[in-house]
Design a protein around this nucleic acid. Structure first.
Length: 580
RNA sequence: GUCCCCGUAGCUCAGCUGGAUAGAGCAAUCGCCUCCUAAGCGAUAGGUCGGCCGUUCGAAUCGGCCCGGGGACACCA
């Protein structure tokens, strides 16, 4: 199943081939940049005319003649414009036919991808030594949206939450827990309700008490060599920490659960194998006591070769080693086609190195596509990394709670007549949605300025705007009180209706783009534009008071709008409401 | 020093493989609720797209050089 854009691209390209003999040319069909230019425009003729040294407008005319002979029923007419653009106007009849098939369920809103791939997506990946903080928000939200989109397209998605549960700091935490256990008996899990504080206390012990620090280092060794008591405390700690994560995931409507854990500790027993293989491949060398891989493309500070250190001089392993082992696991055990790593942009060098070493040493199969889906840092309104006034990281749970409580204030203000219970439900959804959407709607690669005022204004290009649009539609459909099913759009009377319908039918094109490029903000932009067009339609075109046939048609168009909005928001991990 | 990212309206940001007169939202000013939810709609105002040069029918987009900001760069993750 192809989208209209893909279809037109192929047709225009074929027409160009008949006119010029050039095969597989880029027809460059895009959504028209302005309504005056039709629904789609093909920009590909001009570069080709230039290449062939012919007049671009003349070639465009020939291509159009050819296209007309194809008799495409989706196209109403073609026009040459400007220096050689081909403007394409879609046929309302055919648009209606397709739209109605989608509304009544004969065609899917989002067609399945032609090929179903096995795709691993690493995302969220909190460090279990601490509580999740705002720094984990982006990766978690963006990753979850990507996962939902890929799954919807019919790919086999394997979520991987690569939690940090094996680092050096766990020795410190285990030791501190042991201390508390000795003084307070079995009370110790209570101390873990505030992991952040627990970590700070342990850290300050570590920094101030030499003996404690030594015991901590020993505890890491004990833990990693399988000491029973250390393991037991560690397990308890991890369990408690994961409970915190689960609470966040559930609050944020994130699809991750315990079955998606792909923890660092799982790779512990594969690390020696990684070193061995690297050595066999002749890639391993020793430098200053550490085992390293030097690849020519990585240059360090003073122009010297930059190592990928895979084993420290004290014998310990690093996260590069674990990540390489994980690539092997994805490639050879999970048979993955595409591996996405939704991780902070600051780790891009790390991933370049891991990917390069993995390919070089054949930990990666030929077919696997390793992609770092990087995102920028979260900043405060002054452009500095996001911290509390006292300089601590902001706990994610507190941020979410604040958003919900601000939403509650707002709902109460906007809709005071609603029962308190309903206002609570609405503010839960709206508060969380606002946080998620504020993040998703920005290009992931840029740094993100987190600002309560902007995000919680609940106006403009925000989740509440989209949710409100949805609630309005549902409200009309409920008021129509005809039992539905509102499955037939029969005519497009106003240009706005044509615009709205065209927009709706383009939904799969955007989903397709996001699936390949992993930029969820494109979907946000689309939904915002769609909601905007609907709002205009709503203001300008009477629905319930229209004559019967138009009323039926507009209700169906509204119904279609609600289906797409709901589906789109769902793909972003945002829930809808029927009233707000 | 090397490499990577960024610089678009007062603020926060879009701008898809170069495409037609650079778009939203917030903030500002002015209109629109006896009418389907005003968390809305319309209108006005606001830009030498950091700078210069180049590639071409066409550049915010591609290339080069500068300026400014951020990040990464050997035993943390």
């Amino acid at each position: 199943m192809r989208t209209i854009k893909q279809f037109l691209n192929r047709q225009v390209s074929a027409a160009i081939e008949s006119c010029t003999g050039l095969r597989d040319s880029n027809a460059n069909v895009i959504t028209a940049s302005k309504v005056e230019f039709g629904d789609y425009q093909a920009n590909g003729v001009m570069p080709i005319a230039k290449q062939l040294k012919v007049n671009p407008r003349e070639l465009a005319n020939q291509v159009i003649e050819e296209l007309r002979s194809f008799n495409l029923n989706i196209v109403e007419r073609y026009e040459v414009a400007g220096p050689g653009f081909i403007n394409i106007y879609l046929s309302d009849t055919e648009l209606l036919r397709r739209a109605n098939a989608i509304i009544n369920g004969k065609l899917p809103i989002i067609p399945k991808s032609e090929i179903s791939l096995r795709i691993a997506v690493d995302y969220s990946s909190p460090n279990l030594a601490k509580e999740m903080h705002v720094g984990h928000l982006r990766g978690t939200i963006i990753g979850d949206a990507i996962v939902r989109i890929l799954e919807k397209q019919g790919h086999q998605v394997i979520r991987q939450n690569h939690v940090g549960d094996w680092g050096t700091q766990f020795g410190m935490l285990i030791c501190y827990l042991q201390e508390l256990q000795q003084t307070n008996g079995k009370e110790y899990p209570a101390a873990l309700t505030d992991l952040e504080r627990f970590y700070r206390e342990a850290k300050s012990r570590f920094d101030s008490d030499r003996k404690f620090a030594d015991r901590s280092r020993q505890a890491v060794v004990d833990l990693q060599s399988g000491d029973q008591e250390s393991q037991q405390i560690w397990t308890q700690f991890i369990e408690e920490s994961l409970n915190h994560c689960d609470e966040i995931y559930s609050k944020l409507n994130i699809t991750l659960d315990r079955s998606h854990l792909d923890s660092e500790s799982q790779y512990n027993d594969q690390l020696t194998g990684v070193i061995k293989k690297l050595s066999e491949e002749g890639l391993l060398s020793e430098s200053e006591g550490a085992k390293c891989v030097f690849l020519p493309q990585f240059i360090g500070k003073d122009g010297s070769k930059l190592p990928v250190i895979v084993q420290k001089s004290d014998g310990g392993y690093l996260y590069s080693t674990t990540d390489i082992a994980a690539v092997h696991h994805k490639s050879h055990t999970l048979d993955i086609d595409r591996a996405l790593y939704v991780v902070d942009a600051r780790q891009s060098l790390h991933f370049q190195q891991v990917f390069a070493v993995s390919k070089e040493a054949k930990f990666a199969t030929e077919k696997i596509s390793l992609e770092h889906i990087s995102y920028g840092t979260m900043m405060d309104s002054a452009g500095k990394p996001f911290k509390t006034r006292s300089g601590d990281t902001v706990k994610l749970i507190e941020l979410l709670d604040e958003s919900v409580s601000r939403a509650y204030t707002l709902v109460t203000e906007k809709n005071p007549d609603l029962a308190d219970e309903e206002r609570k439900v609405i503010s839960e959804k709206v508060g969380i949605a606002a946080v998620k959407y504020a993040d998703l709607s920005k290009n992931r690669t840029s740094d993100y300025i987190f600002d309560w005022a902007t995000m919680l204004s609940f106006e403009g290009n925000t989740a509440p705007y989209l949710m409100y649009a949805y609630a309005r539609i549902r409200s009309i459909l409920a008021k129509a009180n005809m039992g539905g099913p509102y499955e037939t759009i029969s005519e497009l009377k106003s240009p706005l209706e044509h615009l709205l319908l065209t927009k709706l039918i383009q939904f799969p094109e955007i989903v397709d783009t996001v699936a390949s490029d992993c930029f969820p903000n494109l979907l946000c932009n689309y939904l915002h534009e769609l909601a905007g067009i609907f709002m205009r339609f709503y203001e300008e075109c009477p629905i319930l008071s229209a004559d019967e046939d138009i009323r039926q048609s507009r209700l169906s168009l509204s119904n279609y709008s609600s289906l797409v909005l709901k589906q789109g928001l769902e793909l972003l991990g945002i829930e809808t409401l029927t009233q707000m």
